[in-house]
Each structure stands twice: as structure tokens, then as C-alpha cells.
Nucleic acid binder design. Structure first.
Lengths: 205, 205
DNA sequence: TCTGATTTCGGACTCGGTACAGTTTTCTGC
DNA sequence: GCAGAAAACTGTACCGAGTCCGAAATCAGA
């Protein structure tokens, strides 16, 4: 269905696009916290109530959860004989190897907004916390996670978040996409090496 | 100054105590999210505006930041010749060995409230995030942290948070303080071993 | 007791988010 | 093409956290 079916759906997607466009523009102009939902609704030419049917929260306007890597799922669906960490390492290396398909300009705008929104990290961490919990449960095969599962899940999620943050930070600071992309793969490899081999192998201090 | 100086100061401390008492009671009765600041003010017999001069946010009513372990400080002030991880391991083992001095009943009430407050983790993570950033900077000797410093800081903070969470979870679930306390030391030791030696040494999968 | 500084107070305000009833638009079956 | 069901949109009223302000009460020092 190349035309996405129905006029209703088409309109809806157009409205949705108008909202994100307006929001991103306002955020870029004045910063996340200085823009109100009422203003975004006005800029997108819809009512405030309607805005909340498209996006359940202000945060959801920039934190797209569609492109969602879910560590727990990756571990649960790993090929036989492969360790959880190996599966995760491979997945994220593949992810880093793939080209960025999204609109680079829009992505950069998002990154820039997120990079200097102080009140935004909390929401991201909430999402990360759920992923961590799920990963711990998966590592424990669904049972109540023991200490090792909890620790491993926490370390893995923390490492992934760290590498991601460094990637986006680099982009926001002006590093060309190609360079940041290259570095990303190397950093992912080191992150997983550190988890598997321990810090003793990787530090001199 | 055994009488803390001045009638004003005495009154202030009494009011502060009344607020925390009222808040903790209400939270325990109905849960964190179901209690409003207006209700707390009424229960403490002060005005809502005054309540906000004693506690700047609802969260601050239960998250006492006074007993504050700061990893960055611990690393920065470690004895010469000791590695950062060693310093942290020792500090947290000592912390676990020390008896709990605070009022056990009130502490348990706090823990119980926090354990089932869904909208509370965000604030805690914000604090944790600042600690993580500070630790990374300290590990990098104040310079812009490289990947290794970022990863180590993230893993350490994640591990500490995990062990703490398991401890409080156990208490909230009814584990006697003595048992939870014993387990705490063992879990801290394993957490730091895992960071130093890597997961390969500690898992069979 | 008078004066000046703090504290407290009530109330109005902002902003994110929810609830709802009523209207418009689109879809579907005839 | 039309009637009615379904969905989307709107305005408005509401809630709770948090801020701000002017006025009143309270305290400290002389």
C-alpha cells in the first residue's frame, strides 16, 4: 500500500509531521524548556488537546522510541551457543556499521536539542531503567535475577548508554557524521571488551 | 550551643520535623503519588507556600541527600598508590560494615515509600547522573574524560546503584536488617570483582 | 516598647497533563 | 449519493507541582 490507505491516515501523518516540525523548530530556536505545549499546538495549528492525542508527553516530541534497540530481546533471540554479551556486541557493531538512514538534518536538530535540555535526561533514564530490568530478567531466564544478572544488566546498559551519549555528544559538538560513525564502532568494541575482560586489562592506574 | 541558638531556629527545626513526620505518615498510608503537597502542608499545619520554603520539591521530602556518598570525592581523596577502584571498594565495604545509625523505623518507612514510588526514580537518576559525570572527570584527572574513564565511571555507578537497590529492595521485602547487611558486604565485593576481572571470570554462560 | 529584619501566609499565576462533552470530518454500507 | 457509525478535533474546566508577590505576623536587638 504505497499510498498509506485512507485519507484519514494520510491526514494524520501529515498532522503528525507538522507537529514535529513545529516543535523541533521552536526547540531549536529557544530551547526545550522555554517552549510550552500550548505554543507548539498553536504553531502546528491544532488545539492543545489534539496535540496530546498525537504525543502523550512533551518529552515524546523528541525522544522517538521507534528506532528502539531492546537489549533484552536481542539476548532472548540470540543464536544458539552464543553468549548474551557476544550477541549484544554483534548487534551493536552491526548497528554501528549500518549507514544512518534517517534525515541527517532532522537528526542533528534532535541531538542538539537533547544535548542542552537539562530536564530531559530523567525521561531517558526511565526508559533505560525498564530496559535494564528486562535485560536482568532475561539474563536470569525469567527468574528473579540474582546479583550477577543484575550487575551484568546494569553494566551493559550503562556501557551502551555511555557510548551512545558520546556519539551524540560528538555530533552535537560538530564532529562530522563519518568520523563519529567510525569512532562509534571502536568504542562499542572496547565497551564490551571492558565488560568481559575487566578493568585490570584495560587500565594502567 | 546545646540549645541551638535562638527561638527562631528552634521553631524552625520543630516545624521541619513536623513536616517530615506528616509527609512520611501520609506517604506510608496512601503512597507517594497519591499525596499532594497541599495535604502535607495541612497535616503539618503550615501553609503550602511555607512548605516549599522548607523543602524545595516533593521529592526532597524523602530523598535525604545528607547521607551522601560521593564516588568522585572518594577517588580524588584516596590514599597514594591506591587505584580508584580499590579506594571505592574499600569505602563501600567499610560503609557496609558500619552499623546503621539512623532510626531504623523511619529508615524503613522511607525505604518502603521509595520502593513503590514509580515517579521517583527519575529524580534519583538525575542525582546519580551528576555523580557519574563527576567520577568520570575525576578518573580523567579533570580533563575531558576519554572513553575508558566514561565507561568505568558508568559501570561503577551502575554497580553501586544496583547493589544499593538490591539492599533496599530486600529490606522492603521484609529481610531482617542483619541478614541484608551481611549480604550487602558480599555483594559489594562481587560487584567490584566483576568490574576488575570481567564477566568471563564470573559466568559460565 | 519601638524598629527592622524574617517568616509565614493566602492567593494568583505558569506549565504539563487529564477528562469530557460537543462538534466536525471521514469512513462504510446501502 | 446519502445516512449513520466511527474517529478525530476542539474548547474548556480541571488537577498537581512549583513560583511569585504583597501583606500580616513574629522575632531580635536596642
Amino acid at each position: 500500500m504505497p499510498p498509506p490507505e485512507g485519507l484519514r491516515e494520510r491526514k494524520r501523518q501529515r498532522t503528525r509531521a507538522a507537529i514535529t516540525r513545529a516543535a523541533l523548530r521552536l526547540f531549536a530556536e529557544r530551547g526545550y524548556d522555554a517552549v510550552t505545549m500550548t505554543e507548539i499546538a498553536a504553531a502546528a495549528e491544532i488545539s492543545r488537546a489534539t496535540l496530546f492525542t498525537y504525543f502523550p508527553s512533551k518529552r515524546s516530541l523528541i525522544v522517538d522510541t521507534e528506532t528502539d534497540d531492546d537489549p533484552a530481546r536481542i539476548v532472548a533471540e540470540r543464536a544458539g551457543g552464543r553468549t548474551p554479551i557476544d550477541a549484544l556486541r554483534r548487534f551493536y557493531l552491526d548497528l554501528a556499521a549500518a549507514p544512518i538512514d534517517a534525515d541527517a538534518g532532522e537528526l542533528m536538530a534532535r541531538v542538539a536539542v537533547i544535548a542542552e535540555a537539562p530536564g530531559l535526561a530523567a525521561g531517558l533514564h526511565h526508559h533505560a531503567e525498564e530496559q535494564r530490568r528486562a535485560l536482568a530478567a532475561t539474563l536470569a531466564d525469567g527468574a528473579e535475577p540474582d546479583l550477577l544478572a543484575d550487575l551484568l544488566a546494569a553494566e551493559i546498559c550503562a556501557a551502551i548508554a555511555t557510548v551512545k551519549a558520546r556519539f551524540f555528544r560528538a555530533l552535537a559538538d560538530g564532529t562530522p557524521m563519518a568520523d563519529a560513525h567510525d569512532r562509534l564502532a571502536a568504542e562499542i568494541a572496547l565497551a564490551f571488551d571492558l565488560i568481559e575482560d575487566g578493568s585490570r586489562r584495560h587500565t594502567t592506574t
